[in-house]
Write a protein that binds this DNA or RNA. Structure first.
Lengths: 179, 179
DNA sequence: TTGGCCTTGTAGCAATCGCTACATCGCGCT
DNA sequence: AGCGCGATGTAGCGATTGCTACAAGGCCAA
């Protein structure tokens, strides 16, 4: 059993897994190194400094997220905006997506505070989701582009309310609005 | 110049000010103590442990937020849902609200990750905002309660998109939806 | 005055933080 | 064989973390 070659590329998956499981708050060099079966020394060696490592990991995770969207896309389009939203919210509730969701709010918080690298990752993920949403809009939708932007807004608002224990509020609001 | 008496009540305003300015990430005992003109020793003495301190500070900030909403409420109701949303988003863009906004996403992130005390503060703030929104709904609105829930969802989604550099997406979505 | 309690200062603990100096190892090139 | 260089381990630095032991001040009641 030869030890796996060490590089950014072989490190990133393990680092991303650790960040997805434990969050960015506890993403310090030694725990990360342990998760990647290396030493903090080598993480600095390969990434230069921690800030760069986090940036790279967030970019890598954004890539995973994008792939997950692609994987979920195969099915046929939705037949209505309601169905479209319902599908996405259902996907967000899946246990497999939970680590993404929890991490997502940390990224948003970092983005809002201007932490380097966070905004780029957040922007990328939102752009991917928006593009994906456009492909999922009903075929006969009068305004798929604008509609996708609108649905994205409602979806993210709904997810946020769920994150703070107001899932019911979001649900009742969507019912009241006909969505 | 007698030194101000030291207690939870006299400490909280200064602690809250520091948290609003610098965020929860750098809210460690020594900086907080310096901001409150005391020592970390005394913070622990008065609050027991840091977790309790943070919980109390978040509760205090939620109170400030509530008061800010009340202060902004004086004017007459909106005449349409569009105007209602526009007002609130305009208020959220005000420089004075910026610290609240930035802190808000840290609270959401903590709530999503289950950090003790965060969820309660977030839930309280959302409930206050929802109640306030209901009072701001147009007088002739067919469903003020459900409408307020719907508008809250859209508003929070819009604020999130703004926080990650997608303000334009949110704006275009609202235009496309007629809001 | 004395005793006791609430409050406060000083000092320090063990743990963790990001990062670095130094030495070593192994591989390829000449 | 010898040399050079990238990759890695060991050890440690100074700073910061939450928290505590100990002593001393200040004030009120007996």
């Amino acid at each position: 059993m030869k030890p796996a070659p060490l590089s950014r590329e072989t490190l990133l998956p393990k680092l991303a897994a650790h960040v997805l499981e434990h969050g960015l708050g506890s993403a310090s060099l030694r725990p990360l190194a342990k998760a990647a079966e290396t030493s903090d020394r080598m993480l600095i060696y390969h990434f230069g400094k921690k800030e760069q490592l986090i940036t790279d990991v967030l970019g890598y995770i954004a890539g995973i997220y994008s792939a997950a969207l692609d994987a979920a896309m195969g099915e046929e389009r939705a037949t209505s905006r309601q169905q479209c939203i319902a599908r996405i919210l259902a996907q967000g509730r899946e246990p497999a997506m939970q680590p993404f969701m929890v991490l997502w709010w940390e990224i948003v918080a970092g983005s809002a505070r201007g932490v380097p690298g966070y905004r780029e990752a957040a922007e990328q993920m939102m752009s991917e989701l928006l593009a994906w949403l456009e492909t999922q809009m009903p075929e006969d939708d009068p305004d798929p582009v604008g509609g996708a932007r609108y649905l994205l807004t409602v979806i993210e608002g709904s997810l946020m309310l769920s994150a703070v224990g107001h899932a019911r509020t979001a649900r009742e609001g969507m019912i009241a609005s006909g969505l």
